[in-house]
């Protein structure tokens, strides 16, 4: 490396003052199986890497406003397997994705048909670990139609399914999502039911599905509630995620919740299962997760981007000093 970035060891050091929760989870590794990095900044990637997040899954979703053409869908899917994955690798984070037509946009039937046509182009790509996030929003007939069609696609491709459960009428929507998955002959072990709460978890677990919880301020789960859920239901087939996106959300929800669980006396092995191992077990059924890549992403990127400079270690980006008003 020679010229564009003159970096010293100091530029690469994490900020000197660590929040208390980081001390508590020092050395732990996390897997966030639901986070929309497209809507997040590089500062988030840095903070996530510092907090021990080794790998993530970015499900396809609604970008905040409806798309009007098939090409924007194509470009979005392309960015999930391309640019966004590369961007994550620059911070030493392994990026996976689930591909699918989200429930909101399933209601634009003409466009939905076109999306269904291009999905097969993407679901067999490397690092695509499932069909998702799909399911119900308003619970309309169109949503049901494309949910069913995508369950068939998942079955054919042997891929796990990541189900988004509705905000409104959640309990019935969750039950209905599971009923339909069973009707299509999916093995519940291949289905991750997301955005659970205290009201839905029991049935999801009883029926053999994976139960994911989204720690998302104000509208979904808070992490104190999550601690209670783990105390009550244990760690089998339970996983947590941040679902951080363009809303007020927290990309550090997984490590923060791990810290809180630790503080609350939850067993380290249970924390490991809920914040790392279970998500890998569920999504690795796609055959697309190789844990050695979590380490490799750090080294490979270093050689690719920085040509063996002695200053830069494992996939690090030049670090901006947030506390200084000087920009170099």
């Amino acid at each position: 490396m020679c010229c564009s970035h003159e970096l010293t060891e100091k530029n690469l050091q994490p900020l000197t003052v660590n929040p208390a929760f980081l001390e508590r989870i020092k050395g732990m590794r996390f897997f966030d199986p639901h986070i929309h990095m497209t809507s997040r900044t590089t500062d988030d990637y840095q903070a996530m890497a510092d907090a021990g997040i080794a790998a993530i899954i970015e499900p396809s979703f609604w970008l905040g406003q409806p798309r009007t053409g098939i090409d924007t869908f194509r470009d979005y899917f392309n960015s999930l397997i391309g640019w966004e994955r590369f961007r994550a690798s620059q911070f030493g984070i392994k990026h996976y994705t689930t591909i699918g037509l989200n429930s909101k946009e399933a209601n634009n039937e003409k466009l939905a048909e076109a999306v269904m046509e291009i999905l097969p182009l993407f679901i067999y790509k490397e690092g695509v670990v499932g069909i998702g996030e799909i399911g119900f929003d308003d619970q309309t007939p169109a949503e049901e139609k494309y949910y069913r069609a995508q369950l068939e696609l998942a079955k054919e491709a042997g891929l796990p399914v990541q189900i988004h459960t509705p905000h409104r009428d959640k309990k019935k929507g969750t039950q209905r999502s599971m009923d339909i998955a069973m009707e299509h002959g999916l093995d519940p072990r291949m289905v991750i039911v997301d955005h659970n709460n205290e009201e839905t978890v029991q049935e999801v677990l009883d029926r053999g599905f994976w139960a994911a919880f989204t720690i998302y301020p104000f509208t979904k789960m808070g992490n104190e509630r999550m601690v209670e859920v783990v105390k009550q239901y244990g760690s089998e087939r339970i996983m947590i995620n941040s679902a951080a996106d363009w809303g007020i959300s927290d990309p550090l929800a997984v490590p923060k919740t791990a810290a809180l669980m630790h503080e609350s006396g939850i067993d380290l092995n249970d924390i490991h299962l809920v914040t790392f191992r279970n998500a890998i077990s569920a999504f690795a059924q796609s055959g697309q997760i190789n844990e050695s890549d979590f380490e490799a992403v750090k080294e490979i990127d270093q050689s690719l981007k920085f040509n063996g400079s002695t200053v830069l270690r494992g996939g690090q980006q030049p670090r901006r000093d947030n506390l200084s008003n000087i920009i170099k």
Partner: peptide
């Protein structure tokens, strides 16, 4: 090219 991921590119 139109639908290529990084390794395909």
């Amino acid at each position: 090219f139109g639908a290529a991921d990084m390794n395909e590119q």
